[in-house]
């Protein structure tokens, strides 16, 4: 699991690579809360290179979006594989995040 951070037009993009599971989600949690504490309010999480997610990964995203909402911030998710999107649907998470098909589309959500 790897998290790649980029900044574009004042928006922070976190690209996820590999597997977001019970073992790797603490690393993602650390990273996403670092950027939130640094004052990021507009955050894109790019799922293009993510192959696996479990409820441990969903937990981090839920915690982060609750935190950002308090400061009027927002998380947009993009480029999800179809089977990963299904996990979000079953978990009822599609109503919690805008989920779009590309980073470009995600930029337009802000």
């Amino acid at each position: 699991m790897e998290v790649v951070e980029k900044k574009q037009n004042g928006i922070c993009i976190l690209g996820l690579l590999g597997r977001l599971d019970s073992n790797t989600s603490p690393e993602f949690e650390k990273k996403i809360f670092e950027v939130i504490e640094d004052g990021t309010k507009s955050l894109i999480v790019d799922f293009e290179s993510l192959d696996y997610i479990s409820s441990a990964g969903l937990r981090v995203l839920l915690k982060a979006t609750k935190e950002l909402k308090r400061s009027d911030g927002k998380i947009v998710l993009c480029s999800m594989k179809e089977y990963i999107k299904e996990v979000f649907e079953i978990a009822g998470f599609v109503s919690l995040f805008p989920i779009v098909s590309s980073v470009g589309d995600a930029m337009e959500e802000f």
């Binding site: 479990s54 409820s55 969903l58 937990r59 839920l62 979006t65 609750k66 909402k69 978990a91 919690l96």
Partner: peptide, 11 residues
């Protein structure tokens, strides 16, 4: 809504 959402038993 998100404010009240819990992760328990989601797995």
């Amino acid at each position: 809504p998100v404010e009240h959402r819990k992760i328990g038993n989601l797995g």
